[in-house]
Amino acid sequence: MTEISDWRKRIERYRFQGSECVKCGARYYPSRIKCIKCGSEEMRDVELPRRGRVVSYTVIYNPPKKFSKYAPYAVALIELVDGTRVLGQLTDVDFDKIRVGMEVEATFRKLYEYGEDGHIVYGTKFRPVVS
């Protein structure tokens, strides 16, 4: 039951929490057990900065079944203000307005559901900055 692996990952997804190497400071999202930059196994949880900019992006028109209800939707490669790179879905955005370099911020949305009678899975997505 993948609902249970969704539960296990809830904190990472909800809070946009990754891991940081205590030795060299490298940050990862999703979290890693071991730092692939310096090899240290001393990692700690870290809430990642919520702002970043779009480095590259796509708009998915051909989604896996799980995401059919939401398509089309945009997914971007985002560089956070601390330099960490993550992949994230964009929301509240018009596709023709997405630009490389666009500033985005983390938000909390529904990712997918296990049908009408199943779990709703929530997590982090990104939207154009609201200031």
Binding site: K69, Y70, T91, D92, F108, R109, K110, L111, I120, Y122, K125
Partner: peptide
């Protein structure tokens, strides 16, 4: 709301 929003979000 957007398609990915509900009262909880």
């Amino acid at each position: 709301p957007s398609i990915d929003e509900d009262s909880l979000t």
